[in-house]
């Protein structure tokens, strides 16, 4: 009876793993699935296997999946410039690439093991803000670099908090926007 119930629950969680919308939720369901299977080993009188299954299935594998899920995203930093839109010169590219602001942003992502790529786009600022492909839009004006971040992204919030708490060498300003409001 208990065995049948556990098997059916495992089936239920297997279906939930496949059909949940959030990957993170799937990982938690997978951990519960492993826990149920370790309970099943306990019923079959193999306590060592049950412990090993609990350690591997619910502990190590869940950890590895969460870490893998966290870093599989590529963040795109879009650089917008009004005057250099149609003619990108080497001088301008070097100036932006080696600027303290971009180096610090890239440093933030690299230290967290995120993939980060910088693209120079030919769109205007408004168009770039509406484009969902860009996570971060950087524009240069008289006072230095301004960074436009989506106000719902936790990573961008973290980035902003880092610079607020510990200061920044470059005069980097953060402007938060919500994509709906821009539209």
């Amino acid at each position: 009876m208990i065995e049948t119930g556990t098997l059916l629950l495992m089936g239920l969680f297997a279906v939930l793993v496949i059909h949940s919308n959030l990957l993170r939720l799937s990982i938690i369901y997978l951990a519960i699935f492993s826990l149920l299977s370790s309970f099943l080993y306990l019923i079959y009188a193999a306590p060592e296997l049950a412990i090993a299954e609990a350690v591997i299935g619910s502990g190590l594998v869940t950890l590895l999946y969460l870490a893998a899920l966290k870093r599989n995203r590529v963040y795109t930093v879009a650089v917008v410039s009004d005057e250099h839109r149609d003619h990108l010169t080497d001088h301008y590219l070097n100036h932006v690439e080696r600027s303290k602001a971009l180096t610090e942003i890239r440093d933030f992502f690299v230290r967290r093991e995120y993939e980060v790529q910088t693209v120079f786009v030919s769109e205007t600022l408004e168009e770039a803000l509406q484009d969902p492909a860009y996570d971060l839009v950087v524009a240069e004006d008289e006072e230095g670099f301004a960074t436009y971040t989506d106000d719902e992204s936790y990573v961008m919030l973290e980035l902003e908090l880092m610079f607020q708490m510990h200061g920044t060498d470059s005069a980097l300003r953060f402007i938060r926007y919500s994509p709906e409001a821009v539209l």
């Binding site: 049948t4 098997l7 059916l8 089936g11 239920l12 297997a14 279906v15 496949i18 059909h19």
Partner: peptide, 18 residues
């Protein structure tokens, strides 16, 4: 549809195993 199919599949596997 996919949900129904996978539930049926899981039930079939369960019956097979038991």
């Amino acid at each position: 549809m996919r949900v129904v199919a996978s539930v049926l599949f899981v039930l079939a596997v369960f019956l097979l195993v038991t």
